[in-house]
């Protein structure tokens, strides 16, 4: 029982690190661009598939394939986001929300067109896990934890220590005031989309490293990632990290009590419950 609990906790932290890479970017874009980008998890899917293309189809070793995959995801994802969300003549959050659903449809089915709908795997050798008592971790799982921690820390440093971070936080606070004071909002938004796609595509690659990929993986992650972002107070990237941890752990622990097919439902219920009592998230700013 204790061994199982420890195992689930480890899995939960792993899931959380993947969710965090999606949720932090989602929260950042929500704060700055002021709409819920439903296509955000599809950027994860995009990164996984571009990497798959380099790795399994062309035969590039995984490390280089991942780098090339991230660059390719940026080259596709950032222009798509800029055109769909920044350039179209719309203003309302509802319109942007609907547009993001259209973008999600397009990304998913373009990938489906080229790669088919089946499950795919990177060409990587089978991994032997390290065992410390009840804790078992494969090298890829350790890599996942390390990369996710490093990236999340990097986002923290970027937001708190750089000029770009200050501008992004200022836009999230008050876009009009920020623009009047002479900040280049357009460039900041371009950088924001790049950060979001970078985080998401890396998350998608790590996802593919540990599991299998399929075109619907982004869509299937919409609820857990939004739950994590909302739980942390959407628009607050720090909250999103904590929210991801809560969702990851709650999802895995719930399998002790209820069938694992309801994991996604558990994430949804956690989000709904949280919103009922804390409409701004568990740690959201008032």
């Amino acid at each position: 029982m204790i061994a199982e609990f420890v195992h689930l906790t480890v899995t939960g932290v792993l899931v959380a690190s993947l969710l965090a890479l999606g949720a932090v970017g989602l929260s950042l874009t929500f704060g700055v661009a002021r709409f819920a980008n439903v296509a955000h998890p599809d950027f994860m899917m995009l990164g996984a598939y571009t990497t798959f293309a380099f790795n399994s189809l062309i035969g590039v070793p995984l490390g280089w394939a991942a780098l090339a995959g991230i660059v390719a995801a940026l080259l596709v994802g950032v222009p798509v986001a800029r055109i769909a969300y920044d350039k179209l003549p719309v203003t309302g959050t509802v319109q942007l929300l609907i547009i993001s659903i259209g973008v999600s449809f397009i990304l998913r089915h373009v990938v489906l067109f080229f790669f088919g709908s089946g499950f795919l795997q990177f060409a990587v050798p089978l991994q032997r896990p390290y065992v410390w008592g009840p804790v078992r971790l494969t090298p890829y799982q350790i890599l996942t934890l390390v990369v996710a921690s490093v990236l999340v820390l990097a986002v923290h440093l970027l937001l708190s220590r750089t000029k770009l971070g200050r501008i992004l936080r200022a836009i999230a606070d008050n876009p009009v005031l920020c623009e009047i004071s002479g900040a280049d909002v357009g460039r900041a938004r371009l950088a924001m989309w790049a950060i979001a796609v970078l985080l998401a595509s890396t998350g998608g690659i790590l996802f593919g490293l540990n599991l299998v990929i399929q075109p619907n993986m982004g869509w299937d992650l919409v609820i857990p990632i939004f739950s994590a972002a909302i739980l942390g107070g959407i628009g607050n990237p720090y909250g999103a990290m904590a929210g991801a941890l809560v969702i990851g752990l709650v999802q895995e622990w719930s399998t002790l009590l209820i069938p694992s097919v309801y994991k996604e439902a558990v994430a949804f219920c956690a989000m709904a419950l949280c919103l009922m009592f804390r409409p701004r998230g568990l740690w959201g700013a008032a």
């Binding site: 769909a84 179209l88 609907i98 547009i99 659903i101 259209g102 973008v103 999600s104 449809f105 397009i106 998913r108 089915h109 373009v110 489906l112 067109f113």
Partner: peptide, 12 residues
Amino acid sequence: ALRQVAIGLGLI
């Protein structure tokens, strides 16, 4: 898949 892409474009 192409149909769905067209539907996404149409929605936008």
